[in-house]
Design a protein around this nucleic acid. Structure first.
Lengths: 122, 122
DNA sequence: GCCTTGTTCAACCAGATGGTTGACAACCTC
DNA sequence: GAGGTTGTCAACCATCTGGTTGAACAAGGC
C-alpha cells in the first residue's frame, strides 16, 4: 500500500480519523485538543495523526511545546478525481445499457409475438 | 469498522480492488475474468470481491455456473457526500482566514506606527 | 450418473493495525 | 535548574488483512 491514493483511502477508513478530519475543517487543533473527545490514550491519537500525516491529509508545525495540527484539504482532490472518473464511466455505461433495453422494449411492443395489452404494464 | 462508509473507504484502499472497480465500470465480469490480470490465486480475488460486496460496491448474481460481478455505483455517493461536505467547510474557513489576513495587511499599510513604504510589500 | 467448469470455504501464515503502558524529549514557568 | 505541560518513541499484545494451499460445492454437458 505504497501509493498516496491508497494511503488516503485507508486513513479515512477509520471513524475516529474521519472525525478528526471533520473537526480540523473548522479549526486547527493541538493533539491534546483533538484527543479530548475520544476514550483512548494520547498515544493512540498521536498514532492516528501519523497515519493522517503520512497520507498527506494533515501537517504539523511546532509552536512552543504545542504541535498544532492543520488540515491539508487539497488531498481530497486526489480521491474525488478517482471517484468522479469511474462514477462517470459507470453512469455512461448504464445509460447506454438503459437505451438498449428501451429499444428492445420498443421493438417488443411494436411487436411480434407477445400478446399482453399495451397500457397495463407498470 | 462496522459502518458502511468505513467499509467503502477500506475497500478502495487496496490498489487491486480499485483496479477491479475500474474494470467493472466498463462491463460486468465473472470472477475468473476479473482474476486474469493479477498474479494471485483465484481465491485471493474471491476474497477481494467479498470485501467489495460487503462494502456494497458490487453485487453478484448467478448465471449457470458463473457468478457475474456487477458494480453498484451509487455507493460512490456516500463517499463524495462526505468528502464534499468537509472540503467545502475547509474551503470556507480558509477563505475566511485569507480575508482576515488581507484586512490585517490593509490596516497595517494604511498604517499606524509601522514605517515601511506602502507599495513594496509583496 | 459422472466429468468439467467456476467459485467458495477452511485452515494456516506473515505482516499491518489499533490499542495499551512506560520512558523520555522539548519547552515554558517559577 | 526543578517541575509541570505537551507530545512522541519503544515495546508489547490482540486482532485484522491479504496471501497461500487443499478440499468442497454448484450447475451444466455428456
Amino acid at each position: 500500500m505504497t501509493d498516496q491514493l491508497s494511503r488516503v483511502f485507508a486513513a479515512l477508513a477509520d471513524p475516529t480519523r474521519r472525525d478528526m478530519v471533520a473537526r480540523l475543517t473548522e479549526a486547527d487543533h493541538t493533539v491534546n485538543d483533538l484527543a479530548a473527545p475520544y476514550d483512548v490514550s494520547l498515544q493512540a491519537v498521536s498514532k492516528h495523526l501519523k497515519v493522517l500525516e503520512d497520507a498527506g491529509l494533515v501537517s504539523r508545525t511546532r509552536e512552543a511545546q504545542r504541535r498544532p495540527v492543520h488540515l491539508e484539504a487539497e488531498v481530497f482532490d486526489l480521491m474525488t478525481k478517482w471517484i468522479e472518473r469511474y462514477r462517470r464511466q459507470a453512469e455512461e455505461r448504464f445509460a447506454a445499457l438503459d437505451a438498449v433495453l428501451a429499444r428492445m422494449q420498443d421493438e417488443e411492443s411494436a411487436g411480434t409475438t407477445t400478446q399482453h395489452p399495451e397500457g397495463t404494464a407498470s
